[in-house]
Each structure stands twice: as C-alpha cells, then as structure tokens.
Simulated scan of single mutants.
Amino acid sequence: MPLAEDQQPLIQTLKRVAYHLKQMGVPFALAGSFAVYARGGGGCDHDVDFLIKEEDADRILTGLVEVGFRAEIPPEGWLVKVYDEDRLVDLIFSPVQRPVTDETLADTDVLSVNACHMPVLSATELMIHKLLSMGPHYCDLSKALPVAQSMREQIDWARVERETAHSPYAQAFMVLLDRLNVVSLAGISSATERRAQLKEVSG
C-alpha cells in the first residue's frame, strides 16, 4: 500500500534515523505502524517508532543531536524522543512495560522500507504490543483489527495468546478475531497443547 503524500517526509525521517543508528552501531528495530507497513499492512501513524535498549538511549540521543535532530526526554520513563523539524520519532526502550532486550531485537527480519533495509520487529511481537497497549483508558479495536487481518499469516497466534493471557482486553480481542474468522481459538489451543506435549517428550 503506498504512503499518503503527507507521510512521505516522515518516511525520509525514518530512513535518516535508521541510517544514523546503523552508523552508531547500536542495535534497533523498526516498530509501530511503519513496521506494519513494512510487512505489507497499511495505515501509518504520524510518527515513527524504533525500539532500542535503555542502555543505548543516551548515546543515541547524543549522536542524533550532533546530526541535527532535536531531543526530548519525556517524563514517562519508557522512551525518549527526537524531532526532525516537526516530525516526531519515538525511541522506545520499554514498550507495554516489557524492557527491550537483545532477544527482543533478535525477533526481527531485515526488510526494505522504501528501498532502505533495516531490522523490522516480527509480526508476532507487533501484535503482542498492540494488544497489551489496550486497557481501561485506551481500547481502540479499529486500529488493532486491520493489523491482525493484514499480518495474520505472519503471526504466531499461540505465542500471542500465551503472552497476552493476563490481559482481559487482549483476550476479548482474541474472541472477536475468532468470531470474525481471522483466527481459530480452537486451532490455537490445539497448537499450544501439541507444543506442550512435545516439550514433555523432549524433556
């Protein structure tokens, strides 16, 4: 799906940040709506999300400021921000209260984002983040549903169900996906049971 005209400058900012992160030699992954776009989905937001490790945040901010970005350290404590003129890039080190680790950043594929290759977060982890962002103050199914539909063949739904089982909002969304025939909860349960049996046998 092509980007809207007003998002073309934002994709240039995305590519510029990715280039400088590569030059710094720090691990990162494209996340958020642009990662969904890179995986064949659509509906990009009006900012860019990258995952980084918290220990790299200061170095990344310093490096990006040196090449002309404006930095901001917000009070939330789980991300830092940079601006390319008025275009916002979030550099997130603890999305949905899950710290970014080497394992997180290994759960990626190197994909082309408008002719710029970079690590893109897995569809499974993207879906987990989307579901765990739901709560009593934010529960926008209209944004989560297209993500699930556009990437459903790329997603390990058994893992999604397992890692979001503590969230009633996520579980309600899984029931909705089942009723809409996007996924099969019965199939997910069967896959989970088979994996548990294989683990017992191999253990």
Score class of each variant (00 low, 15 high):
residue 33 S to Q: 11
residue 112 S to E: 14
residue 115 A to I: 03
residue 117 H to E: 14
residue 67 V to A: 08
residue 23 Q to T: 10
residue 58 D to H: 09
residue 25 G to S: 03
residue 91 L to E: 06
residue 63 G to N: 11
residue 129 H to T: 08
residue 57 A to G: 12
residue 28 F to G: 01
residue 67 V to S: 10
residue 77 G to C: 06
residue 98 R to K: 11
residue 28 F to M: 12
residue 48 V to C: 03
residue 114 N to F: 05
residue 48 V to S: 03
residue 107 D to Y: 04
residue 59 R to T: 10
residue 86 D to L: 13
residue 71 A to C: 14
residue 116 C to R: 13
residue 26 V to N: 05
residue 45 D to E: 09
residue 83 Y to K: 12
residue 62 T to F: 11
residue 67 V to G: 07
residue 130 K to I: 03
residue 27 P to N: 09
residue 92 I to C: 06
residue 132 L to W: 03
residue 81 K to N: 13
residue 77 G to N: 08
residue 67 V to D: 06
residue 67 V to E: 12
residue 98 R to H: 01
residue 19 Y to S: 13
residue 48 V to I: 15
residue 95 P to T: 02
residue 81 K to R: 15
residue 75 P to T: 05
residue 103 E to D: 14
residue 49 D to G: 14
residue 45 D to H: 12
residue 72 E to T: 12
residue 101 T to P: 10
residue 121 L to V: 02
residue 120 V to D: 00
residue 55 E to D: 13
residue 22 K to C: 00
residue 18 A to W: 04
residue 39 R to V: 00
residue 27 P to F: 02
residue 37 Y to I: 08
residue 46 H to V: 12
residue 61 L to G: 02
residue 25 G to P: 00
residue 84 D to L: 02
residue 51 L to P: 01
residue 19 Y to G: 10
residue 19 Y to M: 14
residue 59 R to E: 05
residue 53 K to H: 02
residue 46 H to E: 14
residue 55 E to C: 07
residue 29 A to K: 00
residue 40 G to K: 05
residue 124 T to M: 03
residue 76 E to K: 02
residue 101 T to W: 03
residue 102 D to S: 14
residue 120 V to E: 00
residue 52 I to N: 02
residue 19 Y to A: 15
residue 96 V to T: 11
residue 74 P to S: 14
residue 109 D to C: 07
residue 34 F to V: 12
residue 118 M to E: 04
residue 32 G to E: 13
residue 96 V to M: 13
residue 94 S to G: 02
residue 133 S to I: 09
residue 64 L to C: 15
residue 20 H to I: 12
residue 115 A to D: 15
residue 121 L to N: 05
residue 18 A to Q: 02
residue 108 T to Y: 08
residue 23 Q to C: 06
residue 110 V to R: 13
residue 65 V to P: 02
residue 132 L to D: 09
residue 45 D to Q: 14
residue 70 R to P: 08
residue 123 A to N: 06
residue 106 A to V: 12
residue 120 V to A: 00
residue 57 A to R: 09
residue 94 S to C: 10
residue 108 T to R: 11
residue 40 G to V: 02
residue 81 K to W: 03
residue 36 V to M: 08
residue 37 Y to C: 07
residue 41 G to C: 05
residue 94 S to Y: 05
residue 56 D to R: 15
residue 30 L to A: 05
residue 83 Y to D: 07
residue 90 D to L: 09
residue 99 P to F: 13
residue 102 D to Q: 15
residue 51 L to A: 07
residue 38 A to E: 10
residue 126 L to K: 04
residue 75 P to H: 07
residue 112 S to Y: 10
residue 57 A to D: 13
residue 34 F to R: 08
residue 66 E to S: 15
residue 115 A to P: 00
residue 91 L to C: 06
residue 75 P to K: 07
residue 56 D to I: 12
residue 41 G to Q: 04
residue 103 E to Y: 10
residue 56 D to N: 15
residue 18 A to D: 03
residue 97 Q to I: 04
residue 24 M to T: 05
residue 121 L to F: 00
residue 115 A to Y: 12
residue 26 V to S: 02
residue 55 E to Q: 13
residue 78 W to E: 08
residue 126 L to Q: 11
residue 101 T to I: 05
residue 52 I to K: 05
residue 129 H to K: 06
residue 33 S to F: 11
residue 50 F to A: 08
residue 95 P to N: 01
